[in-house]
Design a binder for these strands. Structure first.
Lengths: 199, 199
DNA sequence: TTGCGGTTTGACCATTTGGTCAAACCAAAT
DNA sequence: ATTTGGTTTGACCAAATGGTCAAACCGCAA
């Protein structure tokens, strides 16, 4: 079996869509096989079990997400510019249902993160340490960096996750909401910056 | 059958816990019966089907949530005080898994909201209209009230929904995170207020 | 005591679903 | 043409699961 043969790619793509939209419990192996255009037996030939396949999809999603929230400031931009960069990257990642998928599955089985935490458990959160120093040197309001981290991430992630309800609450259709989101990254960054900048 | 007999209450409580933590697809009727201390047959005697029982639980959760996000400013407090009130109410509601439950199930089946939207579909979002006027009369930054609504809700809701990952990212255990959350409502409100207040 | 209406349950059923397996298939090497 | 090794699949299986039903149960009124 070739690594990432054409068939394997089709399976992974179909599985990703299914798991992301329906969740682990709502996903059917038969459906994945259908969408990949193969038999269920073939599906099991490539990935021994549902758990096995799920793990692959989940890990891939996590591997895409972790760097996004872990990386911070490997450049010499101002803190304001860094915030803008972060919101932009984050919001474009979150758009497709990947984030809700992660939250849903982590919530279903919290242990799923246990194994993967060992790696960089020691090192401090880069965002927090960065804003610790920024708060000392620059003229900004003193807010616990833990809160800043939570707030900035919330502002970036939640609009996509709660899309359906926000739409209803704001009386917008899907298209209008998407258009609103086009200008959101900039607004979110500005909002965050203004909130902690003194003057 | 008495309305809300002791048995019925036990069922609803057990079902709520199960549906909220495992989701519709992950919930087993047998488990609900076990937790309620009755047989599966009895469970079906009270609630004809899984869908029937689920609908009850979901509607109850929605009925608790909707007023929370719809009510705004039926008092003569300042806008700052209103924001503080809102964040406080919201954050205490969100704490238990109710919010993720709603998001998960709405996402699984978007039509689930369709029926319930008719009611107040016509009236404008109160938060938005309120901030429209506030922005005209008071000395605050001009930001599309739709964005303000999204941001304020995101700040309130997401920390509870994304609890597991925030914990990991900030290197906190469950207890430390909960302690951090104790001071969060105040911080969140201040943050929001500072972000739009000119001064 | 008997009869009655609501309640409870063990046994059972049909369907769904993850997973297996022997047989067939097929392209490349001998 | 035959063999070989990876690939594909229809048929099948066992367990899980939502749901049914007749029988038993139980307080209570006649």
């Amino acid at each position: 079996m070739q690594l990432s043969s054409e068939t394997e790619k089709k399976i992974l793509e179909a599985a990703r869509v299914e798991f992301e939209t329906k969740g682990y419990n709502g996903t059917r192996m038969q459906k994945i096989a259908d969408k990949a255009g193969i038999s269920k037996a073939s599906l099991h030939y490539y990935f021994r079990s549902k758990d096995n396949l799920f793990e692959k999809i989940f890990n891939d999603a996590l591997d895409e997400y972790i760097p996004l929230i872990s990386t911070w400031a490997d450049n010499d931009l101002s803190w304001e510019a860094k915030v803008e960069q972060f919101t932009k990257d984050m919001i474009s990642f979150i758009r497709h249902g990947r984030m809700l998928f992660l939250i849903r599955e982590v919530n279903r089985n919290p242990q799923i993160l246990e194994e993967r935490i060992k790696r960089k458990a020691k090192s401090q959160n880069k965002f927090v340490t960065y804003f610790d120093t920024v708060q000392k040197s620059k003229n900004i309001r003193k807010v616990d960096p833990n809160y800043l981290y939570i707030i900035l991430n919330s502002i970036c992630s939640f609009p996509a996750i709660n899309k359906e309800m926000f739409q209803r609450a704001l009386r917008l259709n899907a298209k209008q909401y998407d258009e609103l989101m086009d200008g959101y990254a900039k607004t979110a960054a500005d909002f965050f910056i203004h909130a902690i900048k003194k003057q």
